[in-house]
Computed example of a mutant assay.
Amino acid sequence: MAAVVNIRRDVKDKFYRYKMPVLLTKIEGKGNGIKTVFPNMADVARALNRPASYPTKFFGCELGAQATFNDDTERYIVNGAHDQERMRELLDSFINKFVLCSSCKNPETELLVSRDDWITADCKACGHRGDVENKHKLCTFIVKNPPKKASKKGKKGAAGADSIAGQPGQVDGADGEDDDDQDELSRKINEGAQALLSEEQAAKLIAQREADEDWGEDTSAEAVARRMAALGVGASLLADEDDDEGDKYSAFAATVTSDMSNADIYTGAQDVSTKSYKVLVPLVPALFSDDIVAQLPTRLALLAKMTSNEKDQKALLGGFERFFASHPDLITPTVVGKVLLQLFEADIVAEDVLLHWSTHVSSKYAPKDVSKKVRKAADPFVEWLKTAESDSEEDE
Score class of each variant (00 low, 15 high):
D271E: 11
G31C: 06
E345R: 15
K12W: 05
G29N: 04
V336K: 03
D347N: 14
M41D: 00
F94H: 00
L100R: 07
Q313V: 00
Y365E: 01
T109C: 09
L24E: 13
V22I: 11
L23E: 03
I34K: 12
A301V: 12
G169M: 03
R88Y: 01
Q182R: 15
K156H: 11
D271M: 02
S362C: 12
V293M: 11
G166W: 14
A67Q: 02
R75E: 15
Q208T: 15
E89F: 07
A195G: 15
S53L: 05
S289P: 04
L238E: 03
N70P: 02
K376M: 07
K124S: 12
E210Y: 08
L317W: 03
K152R: 15
S114L: 02
K278F: 06
S258I: 13
E222K: 15
A158W: 01
I7P: 08
Y266C: 03
E133H: 10
C101I: 04
V143A: 06
M306E: 01
L100W: 00
V11E: 07
A304E: 13
S198H: 05
N79S: 15
S326L: 11
E62I: 14
L303A: 01
K35M: 09
T267H: 07
E133F: 11
G319Y: 03
E310P: 05
Y365G: 05
L205C: 04
G80W: 03
A121T: 09
P282Y: 06
T25L: 11
F324D: 09
A207H: 07
L100M: 05
P282Q: 06
Q208Y: 12
D13Q: 08
A350Y: 01
E89A: 13
V224S: 10
K30A: 09
A159M: 00
D379F: 02
V256W: 03
V78N: 01
L287N: 01
K372E: 14
Q208N: 02
K12E: 06
R115M: 04
W215N: 10
A159F: 05
T387K: 15
G64Y: 08
M260Y: 01
L197G: 08
P328K: 06
F252Q: 01
T332V: 00
D395C: 06
P39S: 09
S358R: 01
W384C: 10
D131H: 10
E74L: 14
P147R: 05
D247K: 14
D172F: 13
Y277N: 03
G64A: 06
V339H: 10
I164E: 12
L111E: 07
V233D: 00
W215C: 04
L111W: 09
R17Q: 13
K137R: 15
L24D: 10
